[in-house]
Design a protein around this nucleic acid. Structure first.
Lengths: 232, 232
DNA sequence: GGAATTCTTCGATGTTCATCGAAGTATGGA
DNA sequence: TCCATACTTCGATGAACATCGAAGAATTCC
């Protein structure tokens, strides 16, 4: 009767190999087909089959580069929905000490698609609100006059950022904190800049990011974020 | 490898009969097993099988009443994720004139779990913000002092509403409007009150709601909402 | 107590779909 | 030109699972 297309999207995500690949892609970076196959523990043929299926469904995009094919999440909205899944997905059973510390690290700070999430991401958004750099404006954050100066001093040229044809600065819900953090082009720019400054570093294996010693200092001075403990 | 539980939840929703039943349940009301079976176009046995599966997964809850078993969406979070699915699900292909006007009506005003959504829901939240009844406060709306008086006059006793053990007044994202509307216990209370006042009426077949003649008048006077056209 | 209703459990059936081996296409390098 | 790499398409296999008939449990009505 009331055949909904919700089922179609869900059926894509429901397969464990595909879900695994999507989870990998949630780091916001592009990955090759064979890399994704390896991460999901399947043969390249099978991965190819799944990837084309997900591409057809509009969940991911492909970019050819020589004999490699790079795959990435289609856009922010897809990433957002994937993230929202974690809201109701039962918490992962922690089996090992290693997993436990990984989980802790992820909850503290991770990338969500192309911006910063986790406790650190939420603290950052909070700090920017509190100091009047950003203001809440319906679904989005808005940069105040004071904010324009702030980002300039931080080394983020807003003119360039706002030229990209995507939503500039919207609020993204954080599954571990259940609070919003900063997303959109501005969120991406901030993440990039923090990495560039050497304040945080991506962890190669997963979406977690690590705060460096300079980072602790810089985050304290620039944003007033004091963090006594963090994940491994 | 990195077996995610996201896949488990998705696999529940991915089956078309289950998706159909969940869609029906998204009106926020409880329905009997046989009613859901009929709506999904399957035999009672099959529906029973699906319902127990969804219950086990924590998506829905059961309530026994005599020889009937009533099923409903587990909680707001589940409803929220279901709603967020519609964000990325491709728009339904409109085949008939009837479908087209149904779609129009749904977009104009519908229930989202237990509160008001659609264009009307968003307009309402906007109006309450503009007049200073509510204020945005992170993920939630907050009732101002002025607001307390407002709701009292509207016939909604806030003391009673806030006693319920659930989030009082949070912001829910609207798939058709891509804007937030009012959810939580307060959102439910407002919907109930508007129905009680006879300003809006539920449509039996689906989640759409209809604004009555008194409703047009009342919404205009109380909230300043002027609506020139609505769906059928 | 007996009949009707509402829903569930069990078992058999058939279809859908993920998987991988084998073979085919494109790209890059020697 | 030939080979290696990266990825795809095709076809066969096997397993998971939705479906429904039949029969069983629980409840209400007479």
């Amino acid at each position: 009767m009331a055949q909904s297309n919700v089922a179609e999207i869900a059926s894509i995500v429901s397969e464990s190999s595909r879900a695994a690949m999507l989870t990998v892609l949630m780091d916001g970076r592009f990955h090759t087909a064979s890399e994704l196959a390896f991460m999901a523990g399947i043969k390249p043929q099978t991965a190819s089959f799944h990837l084309s299926k997900m591409q057809e469904a509009g969940l991911i995009v492909q970019e050819k580069q020589g004999r490699h094919r790079y795959y990435g999440i289609q856009n922010e909205e897809i990433a957002k929905v994937m993230e929202s899944f974690l809201f109701i997905a039962p918490p992962v059973k922690i089996k090992s000490l290693k997993q436990s510390s990984q989980d802790k690290a992820m909850r503290y700070a991770r990338t969500c698609y192309d911006h910063l999430a986790g406790s650190l991401g939420v603290q950052l958004a909070d700090a920017l609100l509190k100091t009047g750099v950003l203001r809440e404006d319906h679904e989005n954050f808005r940069v105040t006059e004071k904010g324009e100066l702030f980002f300039k001093e931080l080394g983020i040229p807003l003119e360039t950022v706002s030229k990209k044809r995507r939503s500039f600065s919207y609020r993204c819900l954080d599954w571990s904190e259940r609070r919003h953090h900063l997303a959109g082009a501005l969120g991406q720019a901030v993440l990039e800049r923090l990495i560039e400054l050497g304040w945080i570093q991506r962890v190669p294996q997963n979406r977690a990011v690590k705060v460096t010693e300079e980072g602790k200092d810089g985050l304290k001075k620039t944003f007033g974020i004091d963090h006594s403990k963090e994940g491994t």
